[in-house]
Design a protein around this nucleic acid. Structure first.
Lengths: 234, 234
DNA sequence: GCGACAAATTCAATCGATTGATTTATTTTT
DNA sequence: AAAAATAAATCAATCGATTGAATTTGTCGC
């Protein structure tokens, strides 16, 4: 029986090659799905790039879509490595945050998200995958949403709430959090446009540090905007 | 000879159905490419959805990619209908803009872009297409970039320059313009996340008007941020 | 510690279905 | 009748998935 049949976890894994093969497939999937999209990536490409046989896809992940989901889970796991620490630090001391400390926590969070999406080259392969899921959510979107988006979005809303006096569960705090994320995400999702505008081939260190400065300066300025809603929402 | 052989524009359009067929194909392409992506859309789907025969794709557009480019051109044309007027108004009086009038012009521009990407449902089908081109630019990206992005981005940079004293052609003004666009675009590119956070199925009129308020309030606040760069760039 | 057996894994070969594109024939318009 | 446009049929190529055999690996009686 293939390990993909039972939900997870091989019973006794007599063969040590197990990890090596499915890791190679996930690595290939990350590369190829990111480069060519789901439909643009054939099982044969995945097989060749990973060195594994085509049937290994069905064997380990059920089918191509199963591998795709595994790749998404891997993305969530990697992203968590970047922003997880900042999120947990906030969750721990959230009840006793003051305006000032909340501001500081938000800065840390914004910087770690920016570090992931602006500095690092790693998520460049994620972009197409994540954007596709945003545009046409499949079952895999749940993995992305519950695995990272929801927590991140919620934390930012909470901090905005503390800093501005807005109800953290209200529409305005959520919308503001969305614009904060937008300012950062655009450097991943629309990087090609920025590159062309700047007339360079790649973002230099100088650009990256300037982006960080601009980001925090503008987020900080946005925090000073007084509440706009007329208190109708929760 | 097929009309797609010569680069464009039918010589004398002897058949009245000419326009109807290729328009139907573009409409179908807009729908299907937006829904399933380029690779996910087959020529047979396009044929069935448009009512045209499969061979009409080759006849009018050379091949599937030709139709895809025509769809992108259509997107640019539609977007220009939204934001073109605001852009031209600015270009006309750019030399004599004061800080105050530039601020007002920027507000108009931001609102027309937001009107397109937040209020309207039309660009929802564009999202996947545009995002894909951003992630992996093909030749078609040039159409998007030179047809709308470049002008829009440049105009915003120019207005930021006037409002803040930054050089409009400098890196910081361009980066700031990018974050402004990011705050708006995120409502298209990551709408699914926002929808889930708000706990609704669709953005209500109340949400839309609140988003507009938040957007302008934050952009206005960002304009007050003094220049950050140490004047090294152009 | 050995050899046999079973489970886990890999492999090449092949399935029917679908892909984009082309060809040939027919209809419509001028 | 000539040109333009549509329709139907068909092309080789490739798709995801499956097959059953071959190979590797761990387990267990002895």
């Amino acid at each position: 029986m293939s390990p993909a049949a039972g939900n997870k976890a091989p019973q006794k894994a007599p063969n040590g090659n197990r990890d090596a093969t499915d890791r190679a497939l996930i690595a290939a999937g990350l590369e190829l799905f990111g480069e060519y999209g789901f439909n643009g990536t054939s099982t044969r490409m995945l097989s060749q790039s990973s060195g594994a046989n085509v049937s290994a896809i069905a064997y380990y992940f059920g089918n191509k879509e199963g591998l795709y989901k595994a790749v998404i889970e891997h993305i969530v796991q990697r992203a968590t490595q970047y922003i997880g620490p900042a999120c947990e630090a906030i969750r721990e001391k959230e009840p006793m945050l003051t305006k000032l400390s909340a501001r500081k926590a938000l800065k840390t969070l914004v910087e770690s998200v920016a570090h992931l999406f602006v500095d690092s080259d790693e998520p460049k392969s994620w972009a197409l995958i994540v954007m596709r899921e945003q545009a046409r959510p499949t079952e895999a979107f749940d993995i992305l949403y519950y695995g990272m988006m929801k927590t991140l979005h919620g934390q930012i809303s909470a901090l905005i709430g503390i800093c501005t006096g807005l109800p953290a569960q209200g529409d305005e705090a959520k919308i503001r959090a969305h614009t904060f994320l937008g300012q950062i995400l655009v450097f991943l999702s629309s990087r090609e446009t920025l590159i062309r505008q700047l007339g360079v081939k790649k973002l230099s260190d100088h650009h990256v540090s300037l982006i960080h400065k601009v980001l925090w300066a503008q987020v900080a300025a946005a925090l000073k905007v007084p509440m706009l809603c007329r208190g109708e929402d929760r």
